[in-house]
Design a protein around this nucleic acid. Structure first.
Lengths: 332, 332
DNA sequence: TTGTAGGCGTTATCAA
DNA sequence: TTGATAACGCCTACAA
């Protein structure tokens, strides 16, 4: 008990005893067992973050901002990768919850099995906040960019440039019906009386909704190739994210076509690479840092209050960044 | 005890009891406490990975490959970000070890305080493997790219192209003396009888060896600006990594100079962006996936054997990828 | 100022 | 086939 007092620095210990203890601690290279400590105290001051695609700078910026916000409050961060597979999601949730993290931030793509497990977890009073994941539960907060408006503005930008045959890359109309970016695209077309052509909405070739670890860039590449083989290919493309757009750009170059002259393209996220590639990529910038910070603050509130808090939702503004890939001249 | 048997699926339980238990488990939404379980069993089947710069695709590829290798063996992965600060390093080690991970893979930049703490940890029999971190201990394995040879070949490539005033960006001669990539650069110059000019070796402006979270791209930018203001600026640059190189490229463009015509540049890592920017970046490709896999296998060996294993070191070959930034014509 | 008892939720071991 | 007991290492509460 005296050792405990010395090590944790709480409670009264005489100076002389303290020094004796510290010496022995050093001699034995003693370190207290955090497992036992957490078991007794019932909290760990640790938060888990589940990331779907860690290769995407979007995820890493998010992670950095989450970490920073946590550290300022004395919390630790454990990141788990799920590779956006439902099995992997569950493994991540499971492993975090079994280590008794105080709360979990989820930033993976939704999927049914994952949602089910998550719901279960929430029922056992684990504080959860979702970022950019379509997950609805009365005790789970949601932070996300304004995908609907972002998708709308990206598409309107292309319409304003005179395009009429505009494709969407990154989801199918059926499986992606919940996808707000796709919805924004559809809305923009409809509000300009442009018919939605399902052949111009191109996701993955075969329906493998649950395979982990694929590259979104490759999906963009494949999807674009299919679009180019259409009898009447699109003159513009809106891609669900920048990597998908970059994959599509590769397919366009491979086909000997020029961007934006033959095909204009717009992405989503504004990852650092978007400004650097050639041609530079027009995209919708999403405030990753802010998303991470707000989500973390919400989670910490839940953790600290210890109570169930009813669902809050924060939708954050995005900004259209016009660059060369949609036709503007290079400025920097 | 019977519940324990049912939940863990070990030991004999009659079918009828098992079903009764499972029903109650479901009704109460019971989930066993991993903390208590780990406390009793003395292992967690979890490995920690400490990453210095999670924004660097090098780190994320590493992480993915580590995760994949672990998952195949039934282990979980917790990633901690240290932002390459020594305090942050220690916090990460501390938080992983206090959660009793079974082993730790360290992929952060070396620093004295971190090394000290790590050494301490190793003394308490925590299995540790380092990736690309200059850390020597009789019970710690090291996996790294062949930085010496890579640096040598990058520099020789520039020499072969006729350059004589070749700069190194990303470290100072004093603080970076242990940096193998810099050493390779020096060796290449010396083996071609080119004098090493200390003014051409440019790291961070002020010595802030311990500040976390800075961007390596910005360091490249700043360092290049300083080089350009020299009375006799370099005609070629070897940067310690691709982000640093990309920052330097920005400084070169900003100064109205052309790459590679006015200044040639070579990076290190071969991150995806290197092939995509304009001009495309000549660089030294390092086998991140292989590094992650080998390191993980080494760590698992340590964990499973339970014994101290004496230090092993694996140095992996790199490959020079010649692209436009050093003068080759664009091929793809 | 220090020490004792008990319990956090499991599982290994032995007993029934 | 099931149950009782002890122990993992710590901390809260109370006693000395």
């Amino acid at each position: 008990m005296t050792v405990s007092r010395v090590v944790s620095g709480e409670g009264y210990v005489s100076e002389i005893t303290r020094e004796k203890v510290l010496k022995v601690v050093k001699d034995l290279n003693y370190r207290r067992n955090g497992l036992a400590r957490s078991l007794k105290r019932q909290f760990t001051e640790t938060v888990g973050l589940v990331l779907g695609d860690i290769s995407n700078p979007y995820s890493t910026e998010l992670a950095r901002s989450v970490r920073k916000t946590l550290v300022d409050e004395g919390f630790n961060l454990f990141i788990c990768i799920s590779e956006n597979g439902s099995k992997e999601d569950i493994v991540a949730f499971e492993s975090l919850s079994s280590h008794s993290v105080d709360g979990i931030i989820v930033a993976t793509r939704s999927n049914e099995a994952g949602d089910r497990y998550l719901r279960n977890l929430v029922e056992t009073n684990v504080p959860v906040v979702a970022i950019g994941r379509d997950f609805r539960h009365k005790n789970v907060d949601l932070v996300s960019p304004d995908n609907l408006k972002g998708g709308f503005e990206a598409t309107r930008h292309l319409i304003d440039l005179g395009h009429r045959r505009i494709a969407f890359i990154g989801a199918n109309l059926s499986s992606g019906s919940h996808l707000k970016r796709l919805q924004g695209y559809v809305n923009a077309l409809e509000s300009h009386s442009i018919p939605v052509d399902e052949r111009l909405i191109s996701g993955r070739s075969d329906e493998l909704p649950d395979v982990a670890g694929y590259s979104t860039e490759d999906i963009g590449f494949e999807a674009m190739k299919r679009l180019l083989s259409l009898p009447n290919p699109p003159t513009a493309v809106f891609a669900r994210n920048d990597f998908t757009a970059i994959g599509a750009m590769r397919a366009i170059s491979d086909a000997g076509l020029r961007i934006p002259d033959d095909i204009a393209i717009v992405g989503f996220d504004d990852i650092p690479m978007a400004a650097r590639i050639s041609p530079s990529l027009t995209t919708v910038r999403q405030p990753m840092r802010v998303e991470g910070q707000i989500a973390t603050e919400m989670l910490l509130e839940r953790i600290k209050s210890g109570k169930r808090i009813s669902r809050r939702e924060r939708v954050l503004d995005c900004e259209l960044i016009v660059r060369e890939s949609s036709g503007s001249k290079r400025t920097n």
